[in-house]
Every structure is written in C-alpha cells, then in structure tokens.
Design a binder for these strands. Structure first.
Lengths: 359, 359
DNA sequence: TTAGATTGAGTTAACGTTAACGCAAAGGGC
DNA sequence: GCCCTTTGCGTTAACGTTAACTCAATCTAA
C-alpha cells in the first residue's frame, strides 16, 4: 500500500519520458550509457519494483500457475507440492493453491477464477477420469498438465500431458508381494473409481491375482475416500466379515494407515494377524512403530517434472509434442507384511507366523 | 489462451459501448432493463469472464493473499494451510503459496514478488523474531498478519496483528505434565531461537521447572530445525549422554516423532524407558502405534482467524484496532508419557514402571 | 558534401477494466 | 409550457506497463 513507485514517477524524477526509464531498466537499446546509469541509480534509491499486474496485462502472461489438488490434508500432496513449488520458483513462476475438497463444481469455479486471473497454466492432481472441466480447457488449448491422474473419454484427451507413476504396475507389485507372502484372500481399500490412479492400481491388483492363478472372488474391494478415516472404516468392515481377508492393500498410504489403526483397535496385530500394504510411501509410513510396506513413487520428482513440462509448453518449447510420462513404482518392504527369512515366512518378531486366515 | 472475450467484444456484438456492457454486467444504474438483459444473455452465450488482472490494475486490489511458510513438508503447515485456504476462498480471495525453506533472503525475494504482484496482504508463519522483511512491510503499512509467531524489536512491532497459541502456557503444560509423571531431568528438543514460538515454549518449560522447585540445570536443551530428522538426531544425542534425561519434550510434534524413532532405534521403549511429549498435535501423533502425548492447538481455526483478521484490515474494517489473538493450548494425554492409575505411575502396558532415569 | 544509417530520445497507443463526465431525450411538477 | 430531474446511453481517461512509431541530431561512407 501507500502507492507504488512507478516508471512514470522515476521519469519525473529523472526528467525524462517513461519510455526512457523503461529502456534503462530493461536493458533496451537506444539509450545513452549516462542516462541509463542515472535512471538505474534513481530506481534503486526509490526501491522501484515493477508492477507485475500491468506487465501481465500487456504481455498476456502472468508467470503464475494454478495448482489444483483435492485437499492439502492428504499427506501425499505436500510432498508433491514441494516439488512443484520449488521448481516453479526456480523458473520464476508463482503458485496459486486451489483445494477442491473433491467437489467438481468447486473445481470448476476455481478454474474460472484461475483463468480470470490469467494464470499461464494449471496443474491438476485431483480425481475424476471424466472431467468436463478438463475437457473444456483442452478444447480451449489452455496449457495444463495432469499429475498422478489421467482422463479418459474424448479422443482429444489423448493429447493431454501427464506425469504419473505406473499405477497398474504398482498395484501389481503390491498384491504380488502379498501373494508371495502367502496371502490368498486380500482386501483392497479403494478410492473413488473416478480416479484413474485407483482404477489402474486395482487393475494391477487383479492382474496379479490372475497371474498367480488365484480366484478373483478373493480380491475384496471396499471404497474409501482417500482419507485416513475411510481407511479405518473400510478395515473395520473387512475385519468384521465372516471370512475376512488376511491382508489389506490400501490404494494410498493415508487410508492404509487408517486401516493400521483399525487393526490395532480390533486387538489384532500388523502383520502377525493381518498384513498391510499401502501406496505412495508418504513420510509417516516409514515411522518406527508403523513401518508400512508400500509402493514408493517419486513424488517430488513428479511435481518437478510436471512443472518443467508445463512451463516448456507455456513458453513455446515442444509445443507439438505430447508428453506423457510414467515413472517407475518401487516396492518398499518394511514391516507391515512380515517377511521371508531363509525361505520361511516369519512374523517380524521372529516368532512363528500367526496370520489367522493365511491358508 | 485463444484470447479472452472482453467487455469490448460483447459491446461490439450488442452494438453498444463497452461502458454499457460494464453497467449491464455489474448491476450499475443508468441502463434500461431491456438492453441489460440482452447484454447479459450475450455475455452468458460467449461465456464471458472478467479479466481480473485489468480489474486489479484499476481497482488497486487483487483479492489475493500471500502465504509465507517455511516448508509445506512440515505437517503442521498443511493443517494450518487448510484453514487458511478454506477461509480465503469463502471470502473470495486466492492464496499464493511461498515456501522460504528457512531462508530469510528467499523470504525477502518472495515478499518483493508478492508486492510486485499486488497481493492485498501477506500471512507469515515462518521463523525469525527479528525479521527485517517484516519491519519494512510494517513501515510501509502493508497489511500482514503473523500466525504462530511474533516479532520483537521495534516498538512499532507492537502494532502487528497476530494469531498464536499461548506458547509459554503450552510449554508449561508440557513440562508440568512430565514433572507430574515423576520426571526430574528433561531433554528439550528446541528449534531455532529465532522463532518466537520456540522461545516462548522454552520459557514455559523453564517456568514449570521453577514452579515445581526443580533445578533448571536438569532442563537440557538441544536445538533442532523443526524437521523430523533433527528430532531424531537430538534424541540420539540425549540418549548418548552419561546422565540422559528420562523424558524428552519436542517443541514440535514433527521433531518429537523423530525422537520417537530414535528411542526405538536405540532399543528403548516409549514411554517405558523414556517419556516423550510434543507440541502441535499433528494428525499422525494420534496414530495407534505412536500415540504421542502433546500440546494441542487449533490449527485450522488459527488459519481461519488469521485470514478473517487480515481481510478485515484489507477491506478497511477495524483499521485502527490491533488484533493480537492468543488461543488456548491443550494438553492431550496419550500414551507416550505413560499415565497415572490410582495414584501410581504406570507404564501403559499396565506393568510396573521401568524408566531408567526416573528417580 | 551529402545520402543514409545510427543514436537518443519522445509520443502515442495498447492491454481490459472502472469510473468520471457529458449530453440528448424523456419524464415530472407547477 | 417551462424548468428541472432522471434515464439511457456514449466519450474519455485512468491504472502501469510494453512497444511501435516518430524525429531530430549525429555519425559514416562514398
């Protein structure tokens, strides 16, 4: 506040036209060295900062990106957001944070707002494989990139850039690990099937069941909402079944950790009584006392790659190329599924295995 | 992209002047009902969205706030940020996310950027009690609010709005709890003394020692950096002492959880061998398997109150009043300090207490 | 010497809004 | 019927940049 110093103020001080000031401050030709220096020193004196709004208006770009996520409360996003923010900053871009809370109409309003504000591009991470908001943006050739999700539907959608982890492969690895640990009946805590990540992880899970000759009827799926509480509730429901699964795969760690609590609250142990595997490898999964086995993905890198790709598009590099990047998932074995030792499956305490439903 | 529909485009379509369009779309008087309706329907047809940049330029406000935090990786901030984002959105404001990574010069550059971008106000959460950046902003009467921190120094600083928790009281409660549990030698994992929250929490801790007649020499302080890893390392150093403390107070949960891991990695148990208390009550502290006793504070509310107060100032309400709000901390007893049962201190397993250094 | 290029500026318009002002036509009160 | 107000517009300028265009003075090359 208190009004800014403008180029015109400096012009007045220096007794020149505002264009001359502009030339001085932006290293443009057609100005003598002496006036240039004089102007620059005046600008420094009054601590001149250009008005980015005015610049944006005339240049038609804001050096700002929108980041659309569901909720920052899900620990997956801060880790992703760090990669995004770091990279954006290093490239001179700012981030406007938008949390949709899983509400597609709120997403829609956010998009309108972001476009009104002239953001140069949008990073989408939230759910919804068939997102009309995205469709519209693509039709308008608005620069965007999807992270950790894909959209289906229009053939046009095939040209959308994205950065994901090989979700199907990750789902496969998770369930394969459980199968190798001897589990034959597995509960999956899924998220909304609107999320491509969920669909693909489930797909991978099923593929593992088939590949290992198991009956898919023993792959039990309950739907959560990606948040911890829903993982808790789903796990309770699994445990209350007449023939409960001996292992649970949470399609994200946050729900898996909810399940972890549910198991303990039920007086059971992880992994002695029930095995647990997650997806994402959020920081807290590694905690002693939890040690969730999970599928790791490079969240920071994903964010960083997304920003680079998006900004490349915005600044006109590789305009034509469609960038669809799938990173490798990685099985991270910790404690929550037990482990093999000398060919024998053991509970982590080293004692004999004690999984009720392990047949 | 693909260029926006502007007010002038609509004017052309409707065969009127752009001012008339403006009047129609903004419910201004001096326009007939019929043209108004005609224009509105055209605007709807072409999906007109006003250019916020242009609006901001002429109105001198952007309906945007800067949110300056250290790093979104610290789980305290997402919870706070949620309150901030929710509230800002509901009041029609956007948030630009700025992570300083504890670097005051990066903070400085961010502030310049935010001001260049004409944000209407800034929310500060990062460290540094004597922050020259803040001093400058206050001198310029730039709207700002501090969350979870205060600044000292200038007498001018007394007029800065802030929302905090009663940190001294929280620190007192934490250490008092440990003392009541029988601990007489306590390690504190502190953060940078540049953080007012840290200073005040330590102050509270010392007050408890004094009030309970303990020797302050038994209040051991090691400095961390607010992140988990540093909590881990500090705890290792405590445990390696010739006469280690029997309890550790982490000035934030994130470091306390690092300490938790360090204790377990050292082959000791929490709380049987060593008690642990944190501060902030982040989501994961409540997890089964961790159950960190901690000082709770209303993070979401803090963010929400901050945004309300800041926007009140921005929009000219209560301009003169200084709003300095301190919320009540709350002791949240879980498992990590053990508990009293029938007047006898017991380890959570219910067996006899086994704290090595409890005298 | 002189046409042509170069230098060092200034003038003007544009970006898309908001808003002050102007002005003719219609309406209203006496 | 006259004056004054109101209505329904249009014109113009402003916000702070960027940038195209203009123009005189100086320099340069034949």
């Amino acid at each position: 506040m208190g009004r800014y110093t403008t180029i015109k103020d400096i012009a007045k001080l220096a007794g020149v036209s505002h264009t001359t000031v502009y030339r001085a401050l932006n290293d443009k030709p057609r100005i003598s060295q002496s006036t240039k220096e004089r102007i620059i020193s005046i600008a420094r004196e009054v601590n001149y900062q250009p008005n980015v709004l005015a610049q944006s208006l005339v240049l038609g770009r804001t050096k700002t990106l929108g980041l659309v996520i569901t909720t920052i409360i899900n620990p997956f996003y801060p880790e992703l957001a760090k990669g995004i923010e770091d990279t954006a900053r290093s490239l001179g871009y700012n981030i406007i944070l938008c949390c949709t809370d899983f509400d597609i109409s709120r997403e829609s309003r956010y998009i309108d707002m972001l476009r009104s504000r002239g953001v140069d591009g949008i990073i989408f991470t939230s759910a919804h494989t068939h997102d009309p908001n995205i469709t519209r943006l693509v039709k308008d050739h608005f620069p965007l990139i999807l992270v950790n999700r894909r959209v289906y539907g229009d053939p046009m959608m095939d040209s959308i850039d994205y950065v994901v982890v090989e979700n199907a492969k990750g789902g496969f690895l998770a369930v394969e690990h459980l199968i190798k640990m001897g589990h034959k009946r597995i509960g999956v805590i899924s998220g909304s099937p609107d999320s491509s990540a969920v669909v693909e992880r489930l797909e991978g899970a099923r593929k593992a069941f088939i590949e290992y000759g198991l009956n898919s009827a023993n792959l039990l799926v309950l739907e959560g909402d990606f948040l911890k509480r829903s993982g808790y509730e789903a796990a309770r429901r699994f445990l209350a079944m007449a023939d409960p699964p001996s292992a649970i795969f949470g399609v994200n760690d946050y729900m898996a950790l909810g399940a972890f609590e549910a198991v303990l609250d039920s007086g059971l142990r992880v992994p002695e009584d029930i095995a647990l595997i997650g997806f994402n490898n959020i920081t807290f999964s590694a905690m002693k006392g939890i040690e969730l086995t999970t599928i790791g993905q490079k969240k920071y890198e994903m964010g960083s790659i997304a920003v680079h790709t998006l900004i490349d598009k915005i600044e006109g590099r590789d305009r034509e190329k469609v960038k669809q990047i799938a990173l490798e998932p990685e099985l991270i074995v910790r404690r929550s599924c037990g482990y093999h030792y000398k060919g024998v499956y053991r509970s982590p305490s080293g004692g004999p295995l004690n999984i009720r439903n392990l047949r």
